[in-house]
């Protein structure tokens, strides 16, 4: 998404301070030298003194627009920003969104949630489960060729064989 164009010797330090990952296909050029801007890209020219601000700006860019889902539990209805969900799961034909300590009943079909959240780095891992890549703590390949995902809330979910390729693609392996 980003390309950082600074002096060679400063490249690593600035990259770390901006917490930026460079990709071959990028939309944004980040530079402290206005002569290095690229015409067909979005250029952010910054002073090194403003790196904290630029970093926050990049957070916003990556995060994109907030997207809220409505769910309910015994305490009533909630509007939750989608990235807070760890995963979505189908239980008895109902879709639940799993948060850190609780789960909310979502009045949508799982494929509808999938459609909505594709751009937000959610990935389908089985017919009954959609997972937030950002909330995966560890991936453990099982002996039966499935993947066991340890979520940051210590829940375990399983990537089925049929979704294995898609999952790897989402991680860009």
């Amino acid at each position: 998404m980003f390309r950082l164009k600074v002096k060679e010797e400063e490249h690593k330090i600035i990259k770390d301070r901006l917490n930026v990952v460079e990709t071959p296909n990028y939309d944004y050029v980040l530079t402290d030298d206005k002569d290095l801007v690229e015409n067909d890209k979005i250029n952010i020219v910054f002073n090194q003194a403003d790196i904290p601000k630029v970093s926050k700006l990049l957070d916003v860019i990556v995060r994109g627009e907030d997207l809220y889902l409505v769910g309910s539990n015994e305490f009533g209805q909630k509007h939750i920003e989608c990235r807070n969900f760890y995963y979505f799961i189908v239980e008895d034909e109902d879709v639940y969104g799993i948060l850190n300590n609780t789960k909310l009943l979502i009045k949508l079909k799982l494929y509808e949630v999938d459609e909505l959240l594709k751009v937000k780095d959610f990935i389908r891992i089985s017919k009954y489960c959609l997972v937030n890549i950002g909330k995966i703590a560890y991936i453990k390949p099982e002996l039966n060729s499935k993947l066991n995902l340890l979520m940051k809330n210590d829940d375990h979910v399983e990537v089925n064989r049929g979704y294995y390729k898609e999952f790897k693609k989402a991680l860009k392996i």
């Binding site: 917490n19 957070d59 890549i133 995966i136 560890y138 991680l171």
Partner: peptide, 21 residues
């Protein structure tokens, strides 16, 4: 390989990675 890729993905997403155990 999978967990390395996950870590990179998290970096792209500008999320701090907590790898457990």
């Amino acid at each position: 390989v999978l967990n390395k890729a996950l870590k990179l993905k998290h970096q792209q997403m500008r999320i701090s990675t907590v790898v457990k155990g």
